[in-house]
């Protein structure tokens, strides 16, 4: 099962290496990882999407991450009310005659064109990974030259519903 785990970490050199090294050594599969600064100076946030077999392994990965000295907090937010987003840049082959067709296609996704040249355009889309996947599928027939995805980043919603009214975030396989 895919789980979204966020870490806040002290921003010291080597901490990313420590986290990814730990996951690799203990045989946890990382689907994606994104890192960036937070509102607090000296503190970074990592969002990991990991593939774990069961609850016992999940508990183990959380505890091992927590043990790292620079890791301040580990949360598995998969079952919480969250906002989870990813950004993708998709370069598609396209002569000028196809451009309006592509425009029509990406519009419902609220994606935008961020680069244009004679043979190709680059589309930028933001959203849940499923949405990004869906757009990529639609663009495939035009000929995709390159895809760059940031990996998921996520945060808790301001309001957390009671556990009975909660719909867990689903991370379907890509």
């Amino acid at each position: 099962m895919k789980r979204i785990i966020t870490l806040t970490v002290q921003d010291r050199s080597g901490v990313l290496n420590r986290v990814t090294g730990l996951l690799q050594r203990r045989q946890f599969n990382i689907s994606s990882i994104s890192v960036g600064p937070t509102e607090t100076e000296g503190v970074s946030k990592m969002t990991l999407v990991v593939d774990v077999e069961d609850g016992q392994r999940l508990e183990q990965v959380t505890k091992q991450l927590n043990k790292q000295i620079e890791v301040l907090k580990v949360s598995d937010i998969t079952d919480k009310a969250i906002v989870a987003r990813e950004l993708a840049l998709i370069k598609v082959s396209s002569g000028s005659q196809l451009r309006s067709e592509i425009n029509g296609l990406i519009d419902p996704f609220r994606a935008i064109i961020v680069d244009v040249c004679k043979e190709s355009i680059t589309v930028q889309v933001t959203g849940k990974p499923e949405k990004v996947d869906a757009l990529i599928d639609l663009l495939r027939p035009f000929g995709i030259k390159e895809i760059a995805r940031t990996g998921l980043t996520a945060s808790l919603r301001g309001h957390q519903p009671q556990s009975n009214e909660q719909t867990p975030y689903s991370l379907t396989a890509r």
Binding site: Q56, E59, Q60, K63, Q64, N66, K67
Partner: peptide, 11 residues
């Protein structure tokens, strides 16, 4: 003293 050892191998 190490929470990660508890439940690691034996339920």
């Amino acid at each position: 003293i190490d929470p990660a050892e508890i439940g690691k191998n034996v339920p």
